[in-house]
């Protein structure tokens, strides 16, 4: 519009709506973070300190816990939120420090594939757990 020498190169660079992905990512880190404070610190307290701590944990202990839907939901939420929170944190770190395009791309692919694998594996373990195994 104006006769500014900057007008020509600027025009047409913002034809597409910019994605709000990074904003939602930033917000997700804070919301999931608050939930994880309760889920993870509760988990660490129960598993490591309460009633003998790690010394009392074995297959029967896990079977007793996962007999209750409450702990199944607790562990499932913790798994998903922690992996997505951690995965998004790792994505940020790769974007910050991997300078070559190829390196950044392949590191993130490795991250996404391994994160998805762990989420799927953990979910299957919680849903298909068999207390009478063996």
């Amino acid at each position: 519009m104006s006769s500014s020498p900057l007008a020509a190169p600027r025009s047409g660079t913002r034809t597409k709506q910019r994605s709000n992905f990074e904003l939602y990512g930033w917000l997700f880190m804070r919301i999931s973070g608050i939930v994880l404070v309760v889920l993870v610190l509760g988990h660490l307290f129960i598993m490591n300190i309460l009633d003998g701590g790690v010394q009392r944990i074995n297959f029967a202990f896990v079977a007793g816990r996962w007999a209750s839907p409450f702990w199944q939901v607790w562990d499932l939420s913790m798994l998903w939120l922690a992996m997505l929170h951690g995965g998004n944190g790792m994505r940020t770190i790769i974007n910050d420090y991997a300078e070559r395009n190829q390196t950044r791309f392949w590191l993130k692919m490795l991250l996404y594939v391994s994160t998805a694998f762990i989420i799927v594996l953990g979910t299957l373990v919680i849903f298909t757990f068999d207390p009478n195994l063996g």
Partner: peptide, 21 residues
């Protein structure tokens, strides 16, 4: 980063409840 790597290993070791007690 440290906790993320531990979480990775921890889901794998817990998955052994599906193998055998």
């Amino acid at each position: 980063v440290s906790v993320f790597f531990f979480l990775f290993v921890h889901v794998l070791d817990t998955a052994l409840v599906r193998v055998s007690p």
